[in-house]
Computed example of a mutant assay.
Amino acid sequence: MFSLRSTFLHFLCAGLLLGLSAAAAASGPGLTLPPEGVPVDAELVTVRSPYVNIYTGPGRGYPIFHVAEYGEKLWLLKRRTDWVKVTARRDKTGWVRIADLQEIYGEDGELVRVPLPDFSDLDTQHFHLGFSYGDFAGASSMGATLGYRFTPNLSVELRATQAVGDFSDSQTYQVAVLHQPFPRWKLSPYFMLGTGINITSPNATIVATEDRRDTAMLTGLGVKTYLSRRFALRAEYANHYLLTSRENNQEIVEWKLGFDVYL
């Protein structure tokens, strides 16, 4: 009886030890489980710099509420522009600048690099809306654009501009082709060529005058600066060459500042 009980206990203990060994082998050596609420596929890294400041939000204006010291583990959750959301020990979740994550190492001991945004995902966003304000030959102008991107370098825009001056008002409706030679630069220059019509309405109060409608040729250049994957500021210089029915054609220079929203 005693021998049978001892044998049973012996096999039970052996089975438990084998089960624990198999679980440990399946989990892998040195595996650190993420805190509750952290995705299991979140990348685990170890800090090898003296310290890393963790902010309550993705910006330098947010306060620092935790400092991850040398050797501390961080789980990388997601990136927003040049900030990364992380979870540290004791379930402390906050934001770290990518520039402060230059010395972090993965579980395999290899250096981990968090890439800065290069706005390459703009290639998948074909449509954009734009709004601008500027100077149209001395008159205040407001403009709107609807654009479509065919390739990373080539896009087309429908452009409408309303200019209000002391002696006349004008509306310009054009279609333009834009070429960006370096679309992934944060400061990305572009060149444009287009055509359309310009409608001039003189502000006459004594003598009645008719509106004038002229064909307009457009050339220009500008620069965009991407603030996020959906938002860009732009500055632009444009030359409008009006083919009038009078003896001389007219040239109008326009400067404008605006922004684009990618859809």
Results as ranks from 00 to 15, higher is better:
residue 148 Y to L: 13
residue 120 S to E: 01
residue 129 L to D: 01
residue 124 T to W: 10
residue 125 Q to P: 04
residue 125 Q to R: 15
residue 122 L to N: 00
residue 172 T to R: 04
residue 137 A to C: 05
residue 121 D to K: 15
residue 128 H to K: 04
residue 160 A to H: 14
residue 118 D to Q: 04
residue 117 P to R: 11
residue 123 D to P: 09
residue 129 L to F: 14
residue 173 Y to E: 11
residue 121 D to Q: 14
residue 172 T to P: 07
residue 150 F to M: 08
residue 126 H to A: 08
residue 162 Q to R: 11
residue 171 Q to W: 12
residue 167 F to L: 02
residue 147 G to R: 03
residue 122 L to S: 01
residue 154 L to V: 14
residue 126 H to G: 07
residue 172 T to I: 06
residue 153 N to T: 01
residue 116 L to P: 03
residue 120 S to I: 09
residue 140 S to H: 13
residue 123 D to L: 11
residue 150 F to H: 05
residue 172 T to S: 10
residue 152 P to N: 08
residue 117 P to M: 10
residue 154 L to C: 10
residue 160 A to G: 15
residue 123 D to H: 14
residue 139 A to N: 10
residue 126 H to V: 05
residue 133 Y to Q: 11
residue 141 S to H: 04
residue 130 G to N: 12
residue 149 R to P: 05
residue 130 G to T: 11
residue 156 V to W: 03
residue 132 S to C: 12
residue 118 D to T: 00
residue 153 N to Q: 11
residue 134 G to R: 02
residue 121 D to E: 14
residue 120 S to L: 03
residue 148 Y to F: 15
residue 133 Y to I: 14
residue 136 F to D: 02
residue 173 Y to T: 02
residue 160 A to F: 14
residue 165 G to M: 03
residue 122 L to V: 07
residue 152 P to A: 08
residue 128 H to Y: 14
residue 116 L to C: 09
residue 152 P to K: 10
residue 140 S to N: 15
residue 121 D to T: 15
residue 127 F to E: 06
residue 160 A to W: 11
residue 124 T to L: 13
residue 149 R to I: 00
residue 147 G to Y: 01
residue 118 D to F: 04
residue 129 L to Y: 12
residue 134 G to C: 06
residue 153 N to P: 00
residue 152 P to D: 06
residue 161 T to K: 02
residue 139 A to M: 13
residue 164 V to E: 14
residue 159 R to N: 12
residue 133 Y to K: 10
residue 138 G to T: 05
residue 156 V to H: 03
residue 125 Q to K: 15
residue 171 Q to M: 11
residue 123 D to W: 13
residue 131 F to R: 10
residue 134 G to K: 01
residue 167 F to V: 06
residue 142 M to I: 07
residue 170 S to D: 06
residue 156 V to M: 08
residue 120 S to W: 05
residue 128 H to C: 09
residue 171 Q to H: 12
residue 171 Q to R: 14
residue 143 G to S: 10
residue 118 D to E: 05
residue 132 S to A: 15
residue 160 A to R: 09
residue 143 G to F: 04
residue 143 G to I: 01
residue 169 D to K: 03
residue 169 D to T: 13
residue 146 L to N: 03
residue 121 D to P: 05
residue 169 D to L: 06
residue 161 T to G: 02
residue 166 D to N: 12
residue 139 A to G: 11
residue 118 D to G: 08
residue 169 D to N: 15
residue 159 R to G: 07
residue 158 L to M: 07
residue 156 V to R: 03
residue 152 P to T: 05
residue 158 L to E: 03
residue 121 D to L: 08
residue 151 T to I: 06
residue 124 T to A: 15
residue 132 S to F: 08
residue 134 G to W: 00
residue 154 L to E: 10
residue 138 G to L: 08
residue 173 Y to F: 13
residue 147 G to W: 04
